[in-house]
């Protein structure tokens, strides 16, 4: 049940060859561990998605300005005023690890 105008999605676009190694790099950047058992399927699925989105390459977008915001609106500025009170206790009550007002993480080595 694929609507006709959208069939191109599945037509013969060349599979983007994406390798395990590349997925590992992307996973590293994403801060997500992928186990050895998962990596094969993850790679396959992502390759499918990349193949699907690859049809964009065929579109001529010469001189088209990218649109980051659907309304092409502009930024509003706020006055320089302190409006926030100290709510540390409320915020740190939900923290996994906090001590002496600090959030704790495994030792960072510079």
């Amino acid at each position: 049940m694929i609507p006709a105008p959208f069939k191109a999605v599945f037509n013969g676009y060349m599979t983007m060859a994406i390798e395990h190694g590349e997925i590992e790099k992307i996973a590293e950047l994403s801060g997500i561990r992928i186990s050895d058992e998962e990596i094969g399927q993850v790679t396959e699925r992502i390759a499918e998605i990349l193949q699907m989105v690859d049809q964009l390459q065929a579109v001529d977008t010469h001189n088209i300005e990218p649109m980051a915001n659907p309304l092409d609106a502009i930024q509003r500025l706020r006055p320089d005023e302190v409006t926030e009170a100290n709510r540390r206790d409320a915020f740190q009550a939900i923290a996994p690890a906090a001590e002496n007002g600090l959030y704790l993480v495994p030792k960072v080595i510079e």
Binding site: R78, D80, E81, V82, T83, E84, N86, R88, F91, Q92, N100, G101, L102, Y103
Partner: peptide
């Protein structure tokens, strides 16, 4: 007086995370 994207104070030397 306040931060670039929020209304928190920017005073130096406050107790940890009291201006977050």
């Amino acid at each position: 007086q306040s931060k670039i994207f929020s209304g928190s104070a920017t005073t130096f030397g406050a107790a940890p995370n009291t201006q977050a």
